[in-house]
Design a binder for these strands. Structure first.
Length: 548
DNA sequence: TTGCAGTCAATATC
DNA sequence: GATATTGACTGCAA
């Protein structure tokens, strides 16, 4: 009965409650094939009156970046050509904001008349800023996300970046206004988008929002308006404060910080940000290479030796693993996009970005530099082919053992003394926890004095801990030394030793172009990821799908 | 309890 | 001033 009623007497979008809109969204999705295929042939109705708005909603998602497959039919069918962008944009809004507020005038009348005249830009845009999704809006967006077809995150971010730069719009404004995220998050998101399938529902939300925004014909204007308004507000504030002459009160709560009474009010609340010294990072990286998943004991030791809080060490490992993983994703994407051209792997990536030191860094950051081209070659051992596709993972997987050889003694030459980290058991434990890959091989714990910069005493420990075959290490084999040592980063100087040693990069050591760093990192990361998954799989026993 | 995803927000860099 | 980096935090899942 409800269906009948709805089909025969659809209410205009603007008159619908959030709940009332739901069926229309579902219908639209269904029409687009996003929902299970229906049995009913719906054609004619597609354009059905009501849907317009709904349709638009959907469209936005589909256009543009939807990954290839999904879109086809949809677009065709549902978005009647004429669909004025407006409508879609509107709908976009609707999705996001609509729900939040009483409806913006989006009316739907039958055809997509743009009921709501192009949007009154500024004003509404701003007020309506979807961001902070709260309540409903949040829900709706979530629903949208859940039902959204696969989006090309890389493509979306690319376009967003273009639009922002072309129009001189900042990440902060965009993030706060459109995504509800801070500048840092936006930057990160735009620079390192994860592939859609690796994102959680929550993680997909920003991409859906970006897609909607991209499809909004007035997107730029709205943002510009926001910008203007912000500026005005700022000026206004400034003026007022000036006029007051007083140092105006700090925006927020500042308040008492001045008084002596409570010497610490605010301050104490804020704990100073911990900034790890390069040496410390190095040490941690080395430790990571040996054991991406250090045992509590190892963590403890690392913390002690580096004079850091254990929580800092723990956080560092979490962040590092996570970031390395992301780097990999990007590379995969780039590789893929670029061509899959050859072997997907690294080559591409690197080629594209020669000096990705940056990325690399994510890991190490430090040295990335590398020699130009050459590196690549090397890295892949065989040139290109190798890496990614290949090697990377695959091989990795396959061969853990091979790599194992690793223990490379010599390399270490430099190894500094220190040492002792928790090598021994750590090794076990650390990895142990998860069915470690193949560590067995070498109990190598060996603590060898690793060269590390003086600073980090312990690192060597880590390092020293012989590379039990850690993921990373293996990498090296893959291509030859290039791999991991990356960490060595610190100064060029040190690199030789430590890295090599760790990873045993053979000759590479010498050569090690910097370039590899990034590579190595990637590989290392990749390996780690593989290992981790293997471990999980082992524990679970289920087959895993590797996508390398 | 552990690991991870997603973010924030302080800093660094450009 | 804008953007990039990164330590820390929150919430969730296994």
């Amino acid at each position: 009965g409800s269906v009948s009623d709805m089909l025969s007497r659809p209410k205009p979008w603007s008159k619908l409650t959030q709940k009332g809109r739901e069926p229309f969204i579902r219908m639209q999705l269904w029409l687009n094939g996003e929902l299970g295929q229906g049995v009913l042939p719906v054609q004619g109705q597609q354009q059905g009156p009501v849907l317009h708005s709904v349709t638009s909603l959907q469209d936005p998602l589909q256009q543009g970046c939807v990954s290839s497959e999904s879109t086809p039919k949809t677009s065709a069918s549902c978005s009647p050509a004429p669909e004025s962008p407006m409508s879609s944009s509107e709908s976009v809004k609707s999705l996001t904001e609509l729900v939040q507020q009483p409806c913006p005038a989006i009316e739907t009348s039958k055809d997509g008349k743009p009921p709501e005249p192009s949007d009154p830009p500024a004003s509404d845009s701003q007020p309506t800023t979807p961001l902070p999704l709260s309540g409903h809006s949040a829900l709706s967006i979530q629903e949208l996300v859940a039902m959204s077809p696969e989006l090309d995150t890389y493509g979306i971010t690319k376009r967003v970046k273009e639009v922002l730069t072309d129009n001189n719009l900042g990440q902060r404004l965009f993030g706060e206004t459109i995504l509800g995220l801070t500048q840092g998050s936006v930057s990160d998101l735009l620079a390192r988008p994860k592939p859609w399938h690796k994102l959680s529902l929550k993680g997909r939300e920003p991409f859906v929002r970006m897609q909607l925004w991209l499809n909004d014909p007035n997107n730029v204007e709205k943002l510009m308006d926001m910008k203007r308004m912000e500026k005005k507000a700022y000026m206004k504030r400034r003026h007022s404060s000036v006029s007051d002459s007083q140092p105006c009160e700090p925006p927020s709560v500042g308040i008492d910080y001045s008084q002596g009474a409570s010497p610490q009010p605010q301050h104490q609340l804020k704990k100073p940000r911990v900034v790890l010294a390069p040496e410390e990072k190095e040490a941690l990286k080395r430790a990571y290479q040996q054991k991406p998943y250090p045992s509590p004991k190892t963590i403890e030791e690392l913390a002690t030796q580096l004079n850091l809080k254990t929580s800092t060490v723990i956080n560092w490992f979490h962040n590092y693993r996570s970031r390395i993983r992301r780097e990999l994703f990007i590379e995969e994407i780039q590789a893929g996009s670029q061509g899959q051209a050859g072997a997907s792997d690294s080559p591409s990536a690197r080629s594209s970005r020669p000096a990705p030191s940056s990325e690399g860094d994510s890991c190490d950051g430090v040295e990335a530099a590398e020699g130009p081209g050459a590196a690549d070659a090397e890295e892949s051992g065989g040139p290109a082919a190798a890496t990614k596709s290949q090697g990377g993972p695959a091989e990795a997987v396959a061969a853990p053992e091979e790599r194992e050889e690793a223990p490379r003694p010599s390399e270490k030459a430099e190894a500094p003394p220190s040492g002792t980290l928790a090598p021994d058991d750590d090794a076990d434990e650390g990895q142990a926890r998860a069915p470690p890959p193949p560590p067995p091989e070498g109990p190598a714990e060996g603590r060898r004095p690793v060269p590390k910069p003086a600073a980090a005493p312990r690192e060597d420990a880590a390092t020293s801990a012989a590379p039990p075959a850690e993921g990373p290490c293996r990498a090296r084999d893959a291509d030859g030394g290039s791999a991991l040592p990356s960490t060595s980063a610190p100064a060029a100087a040190r690199r030789p030793s430590s890295l090599q040693s760790l990873f045993g990069l053979p000759e590479a050591a010498g050569a090690r172009d910097s370039r590899d760093n990034p590579l190595r990192k990637k590989k290392a990361a990749n390996l780690n990821s593989i290992i981790h998954r293997l471990e999980k799989a082992a524990s679970r026993e289920e087959p895993i799908e590797w996508e390398f």
